[in-house]
Amino acid sequence: MTKVVEVKDLTKRFGNTVALDEVSFNLEPNTIYGLLGRNGAGKTTLMSIITAQAFASSGKVQVFGEEPYENAGVLRRMCFMRDNQVYPDSSKPVHAFRIARLCFPNWNQALAERLVADFRLPVATPIKKLSRGQLSAVGAIIGLAARAEVTFFDEPYLGFDAAAREIFYDRLLEDYAEHPRTIVLSSHLIDEIANILERVIVLDNGRVILNDATDDLRDRAVVIRGDNTKVAAFTAGRAVIHRQALGALSAVTVLGHLTHQDRAALTANDLDVSPVTLQQLVVRATQAAAGTAADQGAAR
């Protein structure tokens, strides 16, 4: 299997806190990844270490088969735009784009200009004076127009209105179709980006708890709804990741594929079955992981 990024047993400690705990995964070429997880799950730290802006306590990262640290040849093929990106003191967006054009070999000026128009970004206004959404637009434009082989976006849509978010997703997909590359979107708005993600990596408490193709994940869990006792009977012995009760009715999320017999049993018992959304699955998975961790803690 070819891979552009290889992360192996990566651990990062800040004092007593373990931000990343033996994280391992690969990023393949020409794929859009979602790096998902709650606040403080370690997403930004992970992206910082891959781009050599921060250092691992142990473990290793290879990008294009090489160490990225102080490796100009590797670094310039990557782009990492932060949500809280800091710009030079008196700079304007037009300055930032001019520098980006010099730094990224695949930079496309026409795309940058089109995005400026789409986002209605005032390019001659000092960056300090831009609104939160406009500030995010500067980062989004650099990240897209750089056409870096590996691009990381950390919460790219902060402050974007609905129209700007749609523009971002549309342009990203359009450009990706013509110029495939590896794009990692770190995000909280999971359902909104679910359609454009090909693979999902979920971090929780510094660990990778899911790393799968988005389509596989969608089939991975279902919600069973109906009469309490019937639902309980059906879900007995299955991996339940969430339970919700409302009077005589309950909704239970279970992991695993449903067989034909399962489907027949559901129909016979008058039980409803619906797929879980990616967002629900991620939320349930992180809750389940927290539960397991608490159980282990109690057992100790």
Partner: peptide, 20 residues
């Protein structure tokens, strides 16, 4: 002070090495 505090983070986003 500003050369480092304000411009270094941007240079990192521009994928330049620390040496450069």
């Amino acid at each position: 002070w500003q050369a480092l505090a304000l411009t270094f983070p941007f240079s990192q986003a521009m994928s330049t090495t620390r040496r450069d």
